[in-house]
Design a protein around this nucleic acid. Structure first.
Length: 440
DNA sequence: TCTGGGGTCCTAGGACCC
DNA sequence: TCTGGGGTCCTAGGACCC
């Protein structure tokens, strides 16, 4: 049996833990750049504010109802997430951290020790709320997809007390009949439209399609697995997360700029900043990368430039995998030179690190290394690794960006030209000493 | 005239998730 | 004026391998 725990309105809930004045009011949390709504309190949902709504379209509505809009504070949410996951791990044999606010639980054999499964799950919920302040809902079912179904219905129907268990055929059927097919895990915008044209409206109707039909219309084997999971046949096992974090197969960092950028120098500043961040994450995960992608693009909403200029370039590092920021920067500069076209206004840039593996597997060097030498910086040595370690240690202790590559630095007192907006950001209540709450 | 079978790697694209 | 960021998996086609 699987459990799926999901924080209610997670980002809003994190903010409310430290700002009780937000209780009972419409509250939204905004994406980077204060662009779009990414988390809504129940009151904000009641006002009809949709997920993903551009902030400028709902700002007035919020004001009229004494609501609040907050810039996203990922340092806070990440830390609160760790606390929630730590509580979950204390109760069950294995946890899969699925996202910042969701985790699958292995509930196998849980009832043999004390009470019913429901009682155990209720006590987990209570414990998470008491220890972290985050309210949750839990779905319990024999497959992950059904656990998601149960979770979704538990959220929709508060009278269930935050928990729904789907472990009998009749409970399962009743739930699937009650759930619109678009709410099924794995059915997105495109598939929902296609299913509608075939007269399939509920999760139950989806569960009754044939294997051939599922394979033909829902992305091959993916669609067939989905149907089987709805029928109670598990196709996806639990992937336990070590130490409460999720090991990634790729790491990226990208941002829309606060303003359009035209010069190579400004773009390079942005790319270098994002790459430094991505490399930090890479080292934090204890991995090296051997594939690097850089991309830049124009404003995708600018009707005068359609389609927008979007280009990416990828290199498989001839010098082998690395986590050295300086070495990655040298490659990234080459890639950006390939992509950059003068005379355009750019709105966004990003980097992706792929081909992740732990160090020390023995490096596969290019046969043509001598020819590529001109563009290959010196391979990692003990000294550069020591340098990165020192960099990370300093930045952990004194704050992110205290020591950083010169390419990312701007004149004192000036905001970086690529800097986005974040006008309503809360404090780092749990991770910065100066931001601790004071009670007098 | 006959023109296999079983692979890998890469890229691009499409769908999905939170 | 103002529309996010960070991920996953799968498929298909081409180049190439033995």
């Amino acid at each position: 049996m699987y459990g799926l725990v999901d924080g209610n309105n997670f980002y809003v809930s994190c903010e409310r833990v430290f700002q009780p004045r937000l209780e009972g009011r419409p509250v939204v949390v905004l994406s980077n750049n204060d662009g779009a709504v990414v988390s809504r309190s129940a009151e904000a949902k009641q006002l009809g504010i949709p997920m993903g709504a551009p902030f400028f379209k709902v700002r007035e509505l919020l004001r009229q109802h004494q609501g609040h809009a907050l810039s996203s504070n990922y340092v806070l949410y990440g830390d609160m997430s760790r606390r929630v996951m730590a509580r979950l791990a204390a109760h069950v044999p294995a946890v899969e951290v699925y996202s910042i606010d969701e985790a699958f639980l292995d509930l196998h054999g849980l009832t043999t020790y004390c009470g019913t499964l429901d009682a155990r799950v209720h006590s987990i919920r209570r414990d998470v709320l008491a220890c972290t302040g985050i309210p949750t809902c839990v779905g319990v079912a024999p497959t992950k997809t059904l656990a998601k179904v149960a979770n979704r219905l538990a959220k929709k129907h508060p009278e269930l007390g935050g928990i729904l268990r789907l472990d009998t055929p009749s409970r399962r059927e009743r739930a699937l009949r009650a759930l619109p097919v678009a709410d099924v895990w794995g059915i997105g915008y495109q598939y929902a439209g296609k299913l509608a044209t075939h007269g399939i409206r509920t999760a139950w109707e989806l569960s009754q399609v044939s294997e051939a039909w599922a394979r033909k219309h829902l992305g091959g084997v993916v669609g067939w697995r989905l149907v089987q999971e709805l029928l109670g046949q598990p196709c996806h096992g639990l992937l336990p997360s070590e130490d409460g974090t999720l090991a990634r197969q790729s790491i990226s960092c990208s941002r829309s700029f606060g303003q359009r950028l035209a010069t190579f120098e400004d773009l390079w500043g942005a790319v270098a900043t994002y790459l430094s961040r991505a490399a930090e994450k890479l080292r934090a995960q204890g991995d090296q990368a051997h594939i690097l992608t850089v991309y830049i693009s124009q404003d995708r909403y600018d009707t005068r430039v359609q389609p927008p200029y979007t280009r990416s370039a990828t290199v498989t590092l001839p010098s082998g995998p690395t986590s050295n920021t300086l070495q990655l920067l040298a490659y990234a500069h080459r890639l950006l030179e390939k992509l950059y076209e003068p005379g355009r206004l750019y709105a966004k840039a990003g980097v992706v690190l792929d081909g992740l593996e732990p160090p020390g597997r023995g490096q596969q060097l290019s046969l043509f290394a001598p020819a590529a030498e001109a563009l290959v910086p010196a391979p990692d040595t003990g000294r550069t690794q020591q340098l990165m370690h020192t960099l990370d240690t300093l930045n952990r202790r004194f704050g992110r960006g205290t020591v950083r590559p010169a390419a990312t630095v701007v004149a004192t007192g000036q905001a970086a030209p690529w800097q986005g907006k974040a006008q309503h950001k809360s404090q780092a209540f749990t991770t910065r000493l100066e931001d601790l709450m004071l009670i007098d």
